[in-house]
Design a binder for these strands. Structure first.
Lengths: 219, 219
DNA sequence: TACCAAAATGAACCAGACTCATTTAAAATG
DNA sequence: CATTTTAAATGAGTCTGGTTCATTTTGGTA
């Protein structure tokens, strides 16, 4: 039966999430899934492998949700904002399961693949932005991917630590420093603007810099 | 004896780093430290607490090293670059110990404190930048801190995954999107510049944006 | 040297992951 | 249907490794 496997996964996710990996007993998971302890081991080699199953499924589903959350026919900046919002909300809503990911990493390669699949959503958005001419040709996508996901993950931890809910300014600030749109000449400046008033000195600095750049660059 | 406690920590760090938390046996650690198994429990409540000790010491030492790595009398951008270089190098050189941090998190608050102490190095640099007038007044330091450390941690993972050594462009790119210096009007643009040629179209866009900004903002 | 408190020891204990001989259910065969 | 074959499920028992604690050793003091 296929249904049994996923019922074991469901039980495992529940128990892992509420007790943590070490705190969860395989016997508890078996009971929650209404099977004998030995049955779990027919489907998963060991407890680690079971965790890998839970984590892998989570990221697969997250990928599906991400594809849905992104409007295909809009600007790159808008798509990044949608992905950012979706990602941060998911991290916050399912914080425990996300945390389990770190427990799975070293072992099974399998669930790393799922994570890899997930980050490709970002790569596709950026690549399309380049193809459309919305982004410079030689933009370092891989490094920006680390900026994007790294920032969101640390922001999620910060919010959890301070027991704060989802905060959209995290996403907009992140985008303002990543994407140069007509309205956001620079991340730092943008941050200051939304904090209070725009600082003319900062704007002038940036302006002069660009003018110098234009003059000195040969093309 | 105080020396015995740190010799146990040394042994634990070594064994944890090479075998992982689960793979490390307390009996192995005890043998490596040349004490009996029970002696370990005189100094640490349990295996988790021992891990917290290792992790806590690591971050404390990292903080000391960071303070040293930063020249006190230089620009904010330079100090951030120094901290970034130091941090990324440390993450790469001691990747295993850093990974152990995640295993310690949920439990003991103690070692979280050490991590908190570490990130304050960043806060101090930024705050000084504001005080000196190098940075806008209302810069969102806490969010930028997540950008800084989140990006570096994810970049370190990416480099490890691809078995690449320290890459300074990670730090410079990060700074270019975080800090608006005279030479880096915008992160995206800067990325394109160092990738190949500067894109005039991008520069013009940013220029026009700033001009518009200057006109429309009342002050 | 005798005494004491603190430090150290490691055999024994025990929780919990994992195994496997046995049972039960399902499918195939005639 | 009855019978054989195959697969799935069971849970009592094994075993590993973290933790405890009665006993021993150490180092200082009278």
């Amino acid at each position: 039966m296929e249904a049994k496997e996923s019922s074991i996964l469901d039980a495992a996710e529940k128990i892992f999430a509420e007790a943590g990996f070490d705190g969860a007993k395989v016997s508890d998971i078996a009971r929650a899934a209404s099977v004998a302890e030995g049955t779990v081991y027919l489907y998963y080699k060991n407890k680690q492998d079971l965790l890998a199953g839970v984590v892998g499924r989570f990221w697969t589903q997250l990928t599906l949700g991400a594809e849905e959350a992104i409007a295909p026919d809009t600007t790159t900046a808008m798509q990044l904002e949608q992905l950012g919002r979706y990602h941060l909300q998911s991290l916050l809503n399912q914080f425990e399961v996300v945390s389990l990911t770190y427990r799975a990493r070293p072992q099974q390669e399998q669930d790393l693949d799922q994570v890899r699949e997930y980050v490709r959503v970002f790569d596709r958005i950026m690549q399309r932005g380049v193809d459309r001419g919305e982004l410079p040709e030689h933009i370092p996508i891989v490094q920006l991917r680390d900026v994007f996901f790294g920032t969101l993950e640390f922001s999620a931890r910060t919010l959890k630590l301070r027991e704060r809910p989802y905060d959209h300014s995290v996403v907009t600030n992140l985008l303002s420093i990543m994407v140069t749109s007509p309205d956001t000449p620079s991340g730092m400046i943008q941050g200051a603007i939304q904090g209070k008033e725009p600082s003319n000195r900062e704007l002038m600095n940036a302006l002069k810099a660009i003018q110098k750049q234009l003059k000195t660059s040969g093309n």
